[in-house]
Design a protein around this nucleic acid. Structure first.
Length: 319
RNA sequence: CGCGGGGUAGAGCAGUGGCAGCUCGUCAGGCUCAUAACCUGAAGGCCGUCGGUUCGAGUCCGACCCCCGCAA
């Protein structure tokens, strides 16, 4: 039985996980990986090889950079002769001609139930919208972004306390469980695709997830929105608010149902932080009490509320 | 040399050249029907490192190390 030759396009840790799963599956052979070039990382902006590149080097998989350049895509086509192209978190717009040069085309893994949430940040947007389910769509890539026929879909519940990170980790894991079979069947002609209903498409863009939109003004936003923002912006850019002149990152909040505290705090001012029972609270614009359970001041380490309270005993309102 | 904040008890923070402090936690005991409550006591420190100034440095000066935020 001849192995299916895969040309893998991917750049981040999610792509690496998927790449490993396919690499270890005996039905497939990874003939090459196209990934984004090494970039400066961290505070020191050191240029380090990406994890994908390290993995490829260890396993003698050829690595190629297209750099978004049409000519380099053409060059890649002359080097690699894949049966199928698999794309996961690649980060470049791929030219049309490249999508169709292999026998079985190019397949993309997208983290939403297409046609909903086409675009760059489907998980975050689903959380911001308060959706209760999302999922994975494995689609054939076409010129139009995330608009191709669907090979298979799998739904996943969005839990009440799911963050972009926790949900993403589950979806990445699930991808490893379902992608190999789907891809194998596809290449054997055993899958009949389903066209997307374009009229039901919704979209999300990278600009929806940015530092500028991650600011939380407790005097203007309601508690539900604040909770969703906090969960959607992890691990980046992380929801933040101003405490006096200090910027504070907000890693987790809990909508409060504790009657005693709500009763005691009924006179507290909207947007003003206060503490009681060694816990940290704030009232949002809809007059609900939110408990802050995980935070970080600029220039300082991430701390638990008790530590923040200890450090601000004098300025913090206590009820 | 990208910009900025910081390093003091297990944690979080004060500290004006002159005895090392506060809150929380920990430990021991007490009180209470009861508590993330209250009372009494205790342990716990190379004040990032090295050098300098000084009668005297956590504090002033210099160099270095490390952590963090921004930016990318």
């Amino acid at each position: 039985m001849e192995k299916i030759k895969i040309l893998f396009l991917g750049s981040n840790w999610e792509a690496l996980h998927t790449l490993k799963v396919l690499f270890e599956d005996v039905r497939f052979s990874i003939i090459g990986v196209i990934t984004q070039p090494d970039k400066p990382v961290g505070r020191k902006q050191e240029i380090l090889p990406t994890e994908i590149k390290l993995f490829c080097n260890e396993n003698n998989i050829p690595v190629f950079h297209t750099l978004g350049d049409i000519e380099r895509y053409k060059e890649a086509m002359s080097i690699f002769e894949p049966d199928v192209i698999l794309c996961k978190s690649f980060g470049e717009i791929i030219p049309d001609f490249f999508l169709s040069y292999s026998k079985h085309g190019a397949i993309n893994v997208h983290y939403s139930l297409l046609p909903k949430y086409r675009g760059a940040v489907p998980i975050q947007k689903a959380i911001l919208d308060g959706a209760d389910i999302t999922g994975i769509s494995i689609v054939k890539m076409v010129a139009k972004l995330d608009a191709g026929p669907i090979l298979s879909q799998h739904t996943e519940q969005i839990l009440e306390n799911d963050t972009n990170q926790s949900l993403r980790e589950r979806l990445v894991k699930l991808t490893g469980e379902i992608l190999p079979d789907t891809l194998y069947k596809w290449c054997n002609g055993e899958i009949i695709t389903t066209e997307q209903d374009d009229s039901k498409a919704t979209f999300c863009w990278q600009k929806d997830i940015a530092k500028e939109v991650a600011e939380i003004d407790f005097t203007k936003l309601d508690s539900i929105t604040i909770d969703r923002m906090t969960r959607a912006f992890i691990p980046w850019p992380v929801a933040w608010f101003m405490y006096g002149a200090i910027r504070i990152k907000l890693f987790a909040v809990v909508l409060l149902n504790d009657n005693e505290i709500i009763q005691n705090a009924k006179d507290s001012k909207i947007g003003e932080l206060f503490t009681t029972q060694n816990r940290l609270f704030v009232k949002s614009a809809d007059d609900k009490i939110l408990e802050i359970t995980d935070l970080q001041e600029e220039g300082k380490n991430r701390t638990k509320p008790i530590d923040f309270i200890n450090g601000h005993k004098k300025s913090l309102l206590s009820i």
